[in-house]
Each structure stands twice: as C-alpha cells, then as structure tokens.
Measured scan of single mutants.
Amino acid sequence: SAVVMEEGSPGEVPVLVEPPGLEDVEAALGMDRRTDAYSRSSSVSSQEEKSLHAEELVGRGIPIERVVSSEGGRPSVDLSFQPSQPLSKSSSSPELQTLQDILGDPGDKADVGRLSPEVKARSQSGTLDGESAAWSASGEDSRGQPEGPLPSSSPRSPSGLRPRGYTISDSAPSRRGKRVERDALKSRATASNAEKVPGINPSFVFLQLYHSPFFGDESNKPILLPNESQSFERSVQLLDQIPSYDTHKIAVLYVGEGQSNSELAILSNEHGSYRYTEFLTGLGRLIELKDCQPDKVYLGGLDVCGEDGQFTYCWHDDIMQAVFHIATLMPTKDVDKHRCDKKRHLGNDFVSIVYNDSGEDFKLGTIKGQFNFVHVIVTPLDYECNLVSLQCRKDMEGLVDTSVAKIVSDRNLPFVARQMALHANMASQVHHSRSNPTDIYPSKWIARLRHIKRLRQRICEEAAYSNPSLPLVHPPSHSKAPAQTPAEPTPGYEVGQRKRLISSVEDFTEFV
C-alpha cells in the first residue's frame, strides 16, 4: 500500500504489510482489554486508547508507543517513533504512522508483537499521559499493580500540603484535648505513684524565703500560729474566702420596643432579638451553673441549684474572672410580681450592659438600685453597626469618660462592650471603697496581704499580753509611738528610695 506524505515531511518511507502472525497476537491482546472507555466527539468514531511506554525494544532499544483501536470491530496495532508526526486519522481507513528506516525489517515488528510479559508489566506500571491515566485505574490494570491496600497518609489540604495544625504542634487546635488526655493517663497511674504529687513543697518555699535578706529584721520574721485558738483558725479560714484573682460581676439587660421607661417590662423579658443573642455568645463562655464549683469559678452570688437559672456566661484571663448576670437567662416566676429574684442580683451590680433595642433613649435610673454606678448603652444600628456610649452617676464623672461614643461592628461589639464594662467596674470598686478611707481597694491579692498582716499583728499583741517580758514586734495601731529626735535631713532622693524599699516589703498600697 502507498502512503501520501504530508508537506514538509521527509522522503517516502516504505511501509510494510503486517504479517498475519502479528495480527493474531494483537487480536488476542485486544480481546482481554476493556472496550468501555469514554466516548469521543461525534466527528471521530468511538475508540479506546491506552498509551504504553516501553523502555527498550528487543534487539533495537527504541521507545515506541502502542495504540489499540477497535475500529470496525477489528483491533489494530500502531507502532510509531515518538519524534515523528502521525498522519491524519479517518473512520474509513486504518491508522497509518511513519516509521524510521531502522524499523524497515519486518522481523523487528514480529519481535515487538512478542514482547515478554516482563516488558508489558513494566510498561503498564509506568506513568501514563492524559486520558490513558484514568483508564489505567480500571480493573483491567489491577493485575499489573501490587496486591494489598496502599499505606494511609496524613490529611492533605486542597493545595496538596499538610495542614498547619499537623506541622506545628504548639498551634494545633487540639492541644488542650491532648492535655486532658495526659491528665487522664496520670489519673490511671499505679498505686505506688499515687503518693507522688507534682509541684513545689510549701515548706521548701518557706525555707528559701526565711533565709532571704527580706527577713533580716525582727519585724519581718515569720511567727508560728497558735493551734489552740479558734479565733485565729477562723481568720485563716476567712483568708480562703478572698480569692487571689480579681472578680467582676456585670449585669446584662435587654430593652425591647416600648420598654425604655418600664423597669418591670425590662426585667420580665425572657429572650431578645437575634443580634442580641449573637452578642451574648461573644461576651464569654456559656457555663452550666450546676456543674460549677464556687471555689474555682466566680459566680457573683448565683445559685447553683437552679434558683437563678441553669446557664450563664463568664469570662476570665490570667488575673481576673468576670460573670454576667443576664436577665433573660434568669427564670421569670409568676409568684414574683416585682421580679425581686432578678433584681437582687442586677440591682447590686456596679455596672450594667444595656442592649437598647427600643429605638428610644434609655435613662440612668430606670433600673432603681443603690449600686448602679455605670451603664454601657448598646444601640443597634443599620448595616451591622452599633452605637456604644457610657452613662454614669455624677459622683463617678471624674473616673469615667462619658463624652466619647463609639461606632462598632457586630463582630467586635462583644469585645468592646466587655472591656468598657470591666474598666468601669474597676473604677466603681475604687469609688465605692472611698467610703472607708482606711481600706482603699487596690486588688484582691493586696486584700489578702492586708488580712495576713492584721492576723500577724493580733498574734503579736496576744503574745505580748500573755508574756509581758516579750517586746511587741508591731505596736498596736491605737498606741502612739514614742517621740523621736529629728534626724539629720537627708537628700530627698535617698528618703524616697528608703521609703520605697520599706513599702515594698510591708505593703503595696502607695504604689497603687
């Protein structure tokens, strides 16, 4: 048969007729292969192709491409040299491709048809291009793949890379869960390890502090508590009631339409708007009261037996805890006409967050109470924005700035309102402590230090009264110190430094 060459192609190359033996071998191979691939376009007849790359030819070592076609129900084999250009295909004639002069020997084609199974398996396991790669995943090629499931790999992101949580363990979102698992493993320790309690022994800490320079003076030496005195035992138990972190309780009120001037209507609300609910979820963490331990979680007086509701929101960081007394989460009882059960919590909070959804101005004093010092007013606006402002009593104007209003988005509203309420509550605590000038409020841990110092002074006084020969370590507060001759004046800087060093040991009130 003659071949018409394309323009620009090399000279004529004689194409030899395939021997009958080659056709029989390739026909047997075509019957084993699956003929249901995917359909081509209507211009080209339905056909199945599979590209198999052999590394070497037997005796020649030339890479070839073998295409199996099922045109007219008769499979045909096409061998081509890759750099050459194939002729145009037609549905009426068999596929013809040019070969190099080196394939002119018909014996070479017979060798190609009689490829060993080793070469076929190696060509099938190679990388296939384009559409033949999808075909190689079918059941027909499963014989050339190794048996057994593939090893499982770690989760992959859409980009093909490992997620960040699997790369950096410290930033993994499941870090707290692993800590819980470690605690569970520790709890399952053997009885021999049960006595080993991690941490620092208080006796060891005391020993280090006792021999430090801070205890060089007799006034700073630790003293032993009497065991037989019940009054001192009660004082030590009272110390446990003062937490070592700051605590805040903040009221949250929802004002519906037409309720801006009605205290009873505001306290009777059992739910609010959708934006109000989203605002609550951002204030803190939802907790169930019956599962809380009052000595570990500050509840601000809420009952854990269901008297004040089942849930509330709280927030904490390293040095403070805040609980929100939310009116809509507290039960509304029919027998309580004046809502006294709610007001006994909300009316005693220094700061209230008022979500004013009424469309009218909310005035300070609508919720009557002796300790309502500051109101954080949240007014929802259009386009997911809110107006946040402050209202306070006249005696609080020096501590709280009420002249600045803020426009905040719904997303950042819980954070801004919480921070403003916490700052206002700190100012309210300082303002409330002014009624007792001898006990200015600095912080909870300073209050613990003052309680310890008062307890020490009482013990020293009782020891001096029981044994008059012992001198008083600290003179009583009601006694007057003996007159001392004025010492020589020293520079102001040295006096300030000495006073600062003494105050650092005794108390921190002056620095606050």
Rank of each mutant, 00 (worst) to 15 (best):
V388G: 00
D303L: 02
T485E: 12
C460R: 08
L449C: 07
A427K: 03
K499P: 12
E488G: 14
D382I: 02
N269F: 00
E257W: 08
S244G: 14
E228Q: 09
V236Y: 08
M426L: 10
S235R: 09
S229R: 07
W315H: 06
G258N: 10
L283W: 01
F362L: 06
S469F: 08
A447H: 12
R434F: 08
M426T: 03
T312G: 13
A487T: 10
Q484R: 13
E397L: 13
A251S: 07
D336Y: 10
T312H: 10
R450I: 04
E510H: 09
L238C: 07
N436T: 10
L413K: 01
V376H: 00
S469M: 15
H316L: 06
A447G: 14
Y313N: 03
P471G: 13
N467P: 07
S409K: 02
D341A: 14
K406S: 15
I326F: 03
I326S: 04
Q293S: 12
S273K: 01
G258W: 15
S273D: 02
P482E: 13
T485A: 10
S268A: 14
E384H: 12
I353G: 00
Y245H: 06
G301H: 05
E307H: 12
V323L: 12
F373V: 10
I446K: 11
L267A: 03
P468I: 11
I319A: 06
L302E: 14
P482T: 13
D395M: 05
E278G: 05
V473A: 14
T281D: 11
V297H: 14
K480N: 14
P222N: 09
D303E: 08
W445H: 13
Q429Y: 08
L286C: 07
S435L: 12
R458H: 14
R411D: 13
Y274V: 07
P442K: 08
V400C: 11
Y383K: 03
S229N: 12
G496S: 13
N269G: 03
A405Q: 12
D341V: 10
E307S: 14
D336N: 15
I326A: 04
L289T: 14
V408Q: 00
H431L: 13
H375V: 11
E397T: 14
V323M: 06
P476Y: 13
F415P: 01
A464D: 13
H478G: 15
K221E: 15
N227W: 06
S477D: 15
L422E: 02
L399V: 11
L413F: 00
S443V: 14
L329E: 06
I353Y: 00
M426G: 01
K333N: 10
Y465N: 09
R285E: 15
S443N: 13
T312P: 04
E510Y: 06
F362K: 01
K333M: 10
E461L: 10
G306L: 06
I353A: 00
D349A: 12
Q230W: 07
M330C: 07
